[in-house]
Design a binder for these strands. Structure first.
Lengths: 155, 155
DNA sequence: CGGGGATGCTTCAGGCTTGATCTATTCAGG
DNA sequence: CCTGAATAGATCAAGCCTGAAGCATCCCCG
């Protein structure tokens, strides 16, 4: 098999190979999830991600909180919330304490819609990661936690 | 710290947590690299990726080979090659054996430009992954290889 | 030969994402 | 109070990326 990692020469730094493989794995999973969301639910990954965050925060989230959690820019969040609001899946509620801000929440419809998607989403992910034993997944989780912690520091 | 993983409940499937953490790590690294490429070289990650593939294939690559290696669609490759060609960094050479196709190659200018960026790029990646020991990086590489292999199969 | 299907590439509309810039509001000090 | 800095969002241009559709060329097989 030839893929993007081909650019890593034998003598190259381990870190480069690790990064390329990390990227490949992420893209493989992302593609599967995107395709599934589009074909089965007519939606997209960013929309799903945003709704997933809201589902875990029933009290609602402010735009900038969504932006931080999803690791995307504010402008982006505005656009996606606009769409979802227009479709009646989320709602903007005034934040009494701060007239600049508001809280975004899933509507009833949004909750129902998300629940369906979440089930399918979990199935896909479990299937994709089934190449690793339970123990190996734990080890992967541990290593990625270290990567993350260090990357956050140096950024 | 609160981040996208917050949506993983304690009882959730291990695979879901793994996937979210994988995504976070990838995005952290990607952001650093994007910012560096933009600020120091006025370019973007997709353009860099494409040039990286060409650098490892001095004989040139066909559009569909680039598409496969970079894991993006053909239309996308066309657009990026168009840009780079206009800037004189790559060139389209006729493929004598097949009049539909051509080979894309780095120009001299492109090679020089890429070499500079590659040095900086490697530094960033090494720095970002420095949270892991040599042994841990090897283990991470091994685990990701298994993920990749299995994900390719089930896709 | 000579179709018909496969392949290589381009084009296009639509959605995502970014960084920069703008407006409105809040807040902290003087 | 008042003013300047910080913060919450919205808006915008530009680039990325996709899937679908289209054109040209190749290749297989009857």
């Amino acid at each position: 098999m030839q893929d993007r990692e081909t650019i890593a020469r034998a003598g190259d730094h381990r870190a480069l190979r690790t990064w390329l493989r990390l990227l490949t794995c992420t893209q493989l999973i992302e593609r599967r999830v995107r395709t599934g969301l589009r074909e089965q639910f007519g939606t997209t990954l960013p929309r799903f991600d945003l709704m997933a965050q809201l589902e875990r925060h029933p009290e609602g989230l402010k735009m900038n909180e969504l932006s931080r959690l999803l690791m995307v820019t504010g402008g982006n969040v505005t656009a996606i919330v606009d769409q979802l609001e227009k479709e009646g899946l989320v709602e903007r509620l005034d934040e009494p304490a701060d007239r600049r801000a508001f809280r975004i929440r899933l509507t009833k419809t949004g909750e129902k819609s998300f629940a369906e998607m979440a089930r399918a989403h979990e199935e896909w992910v479990v299937e994709l990661l089934a190449g690793l034993s339970r123990r190996e997944q734990d080890e992967l989780l541990r290593l990625l936690a270290k990567v993350k912690e260090h990357a956050v520091e140096v950024t």
